[in-house]
């Protein structure tokens, strides 16, 4: 079964690498942006997986770090466009700040949230992310409720041009691979053992001498920083920055991707993000098509109800596929109930 799993994951990664070439060849540039979004959300879901899957910390506020990352690009653009501060478009600066600012925000939010457990932790991370959401709605200068359209993207000079969809795609692909490699080292290091051990049995870990709070907090900060990088990519991909990215619903989507793909596995969140966006994209079309085949009337509406199928599908996966898609690939069909 491990062979099937590795084969499948290698296939997915290779297929993802070929997307721009294929999309260009069949003259469907739309696919590049769809798959860029997949890579971006795969990075965000992987960052959440560090705390949720490996650390057992159910953060219901990761959209905040995604949003903070994208606002770094948005705010930089605003000052470059309106105040003539050209340096504020510097892509390296953006990349650095999308690591630092969401990372620090996660450390601050984590410092308070990690003193709670269970449902309280979920609610407090949710509350903090909603605070940031409303804070940015109140920031009229940077578009408030309407968001900001980016006429210029992060500027990497002659190194690369993010206006070229293929180049942006490969940047996202490269960053995803880098993030996965860093996470792989992290979760298998001494630090990772403490974080995973604290998920399994925190009381025992304290008894053998670990101040677990510190390790969980640093993991939370690293997770926020990685999620910020996803925000940086997301802003450049959509050429738009808005508060809606920070809304709690998107925190929920990220959790769904992690659970769908397989919590606490390296590639699970990647599979989850790809699967989630595939369903979001093609389930409506599929339902409309089935409606036509069975001869229904006004089939245009059928597609709008795709979530009625998506929801139960998720429930089935959670109930019957222990370990999500990654678990299925390992042949774990054991029930969770």
């Amino acid at each position: 079964m491990q062979m099937i799993r590795f084969g499948f994951i290698a296939l997915v990664m290779l297929a993802l690498a070929a997307v721009p070439a294929v999309a260009t060849a069949i003259d469907e540039p739309f696919y590049i942006s769809l798959f860029t979004r997949m890579l971006v959300l795969a990075i965000a879901a992987s960052s959440l997986n560090l705390v949720l899957g490996y650390g057992g910390m159910v953060s219901f506020g990761h959209a905040a770090y995604l949003g903070l990352g994208s606002y770094v690009v948005g705010v930089g653009f605003y000052h470059a466009a309106n105040d003539g501060m050209d340096w504020a478009l510097n892509g390296w600066l953006h990349l650095a700040l999308t690591i630092i600012i969401p990372g620090l925000a996660a450390l601050l939010i984590g410092a308070i949230s990690l003193r709670t457990r269970g449902v309280y932790f979920i609610m407090i991370t949710l509350a903090f992310s909603q605070m940031l959401y409303y804070f940015f709605i109140g920031l009229e200068r940077y578009g408030g409720d309407d968001g900001l359209s980016l006429w210029y993207l992060s500027d990497f000079g002659s190194v690369m041009d993010l206006n070229d969809d293929s180049q942006l795609y490969y940047l996202a692909y490269g960053l995803l691979v880098l993030v996965l490699f860093i996470l792989y080292r992290l979760v298998n290091s001494r630090f990772g053992m403490v974080v995973r051990g604290a998920k399994s049995n925190e009381r025992r870990l304290m008894a053998v001498g670990f101040p677990t709070y510190r390790y969980r907090l640093v993991a939370f900060g690293i997770s926020g920083a990685i999620c910020g990088v996803a925000g940086f990519l997301m802003a450049n991909q959509s050429e738009f920055v808005s508060t809606s990215e920070m809304h709690w619903v998107h925190s929920g989507d990220l959790i769904v991707m992690v659970v769908l793909g397989g919590m606490g596995t390296l590639f699970g969140p990647v599979l989850g993000a790809v699967g989630f966006l595939m369903l979001e994209q093609y389930l409506p079309e599929l339902m409309e098509g089935i409606c036509h085949i069975i001869g229904g009337n006004s089939c245009g509406i059928a597609g709008e109800y795709w979530k009625m199928v998506f929801g139960p599908l998720l429930i089935l996966i959670v109930l019957f596929a222990r370990g999500g898609i990654d678990g299925l690939l390992q042949g774990k069909v054991g029930r969770n109930v």
Binding site: R185, L186, R190, F191, M193, L205, G209, F210, V218
Partner: peptide, 20 residues
């Protein structure tokens, strides 16, 4: 047991080398 050993070999903010 390795985790218990680790607890008494200084801090565990070691992010890169494989513990196993």
């Amino acid at each position: 047991v390795a985790l218990a050993v680790q607890a008494h070999q200084g801090h565990s903010f070691r992010f890169w080398r494989k513990a196993a």
